[in-house]
Design a protein around this nucleic acid. Structure first.
Lengths: 182, 182
DNA sequence: GTCTATACAGCGATAGAC
DNA sequence: GTCTATCGCTGTATAGAC
């Protein structure tokens, strides 16, 4: 392993599974296949720097795969919004995979990473609202609808995990998709 | 302090703030005003028994204040559903207060307390669906709508905490309330 | 029932050999 | 860069005096 970026996906999955406090360095070593020495070589700031790098990576992925396409959606073309729903179902594995920013928002980690977490959700809401305006919706309805969709995604993850029924997540998502296309 | 029930509200708040893993015994002592000896006297099973007692207490409160009223809603009377929304906004303090079952569902605690967590959300969905049927809705639409509402509550908490804007929670809730009354 | 003292494991983090 | 060894601390949990 030559650079720290190669370790980030494994770190991300470990933080998603155990949370920030729950993910011990031993688990992070096991997940990445690196020793503590290597981990601290790549992330001198320790766990906090690892989590910050993971959050930045998540944010970058969403920006490229979801937020930018939404912002660049051609007027009158609902494809970008539909693609967002597809990408979300895929990324969160029908609710089996936790949203890191959402999980952090519920815990003490919220204060530590407040700016990134807020930025992530603000970007999501504003870019989706922009796509809705491209589709003909006016403000403030577009932003209100975007907020509802993003909340539904987060709530869908919570609910499908609580009930252990991934189908619930798909159901919640499809309901939102149908509503936006109506 | 003569019985353990008096300690439960303080324990609940501590678990809500720090999560299960994040809440240390020192913090739980500080929150309750009890020493470790007393805490272990009331909860010989340690943290796990404390969290289980808190979850049972939460479940009992929701059953009495929300689930039962929904199930007993008179046909054609939307008051019970509207009361649920009011109670939810109040209980979760406009999204500032975390839902314990929801937060646990996102973390490792989900496996440990799977039955209570699932029961909590199942009760919520089925009793709200019953109230919607009393209002004239048919299945499967009633259950689907109930799922959407419960997901919106959970997502609203996540989102309003992430953005640090309690008004977002109220907005998400009011949108659901308006939709059900439409 | 409540306290203090303590056991012992695991934590995050560092040092230094290679 | 990667490892092992180790530090100092805090974690949960227990024992026993009062």
């Amino acid at each position: 392993m030559t650079d720290r970026s190669a370790a980030i996906p494994a770190l991300a999955e470990a933080f998603r599974e155990h949370g920030f406090e729950g993910a011990s360095l031993a688990q992070l070593c096991a997940a990445t296949g690196l020793g503590k020495g290597s981990l601290y070589h790549f992330f001198p700031g320790g766990k906090e720097e690892m989590a910050a790098a993971v959050l930045a990576d998540v944010d970058a992925w969403f920006t490229g795969a979801i937020f930018e396409p939404l912002r660049n959606a051609p007027a009158g073309d609902p494809a970008a919004i539909s693609a967002m729903f597809d990408a979300v179902v895929d990324y969160f594995k029908s609710g089996r995979r936790v949203c890191l920013a959402g999980a952090f928002a519920l815990g003490r980690e919220r204060d530590r990473f407040a700016d990134v977490i807020r930025g992530y959700f603000e970007q999501w809401i504003t870019s989706l609202a922009a796509a809705l305006r491209s589709g003909g919706q006016r403000e403030p309805g577009a932003t209100a609808a975007a907020i509802e969709v993003v909340a539904a995604v987060q709530g869908g993850i919570v609910l499908s995990r609580a009930l252990n029924e991934p189908e619930i997540f798909r159901q919640v998502i499809e309901r939102q998709r149908a509503r936006l296309h109506a």
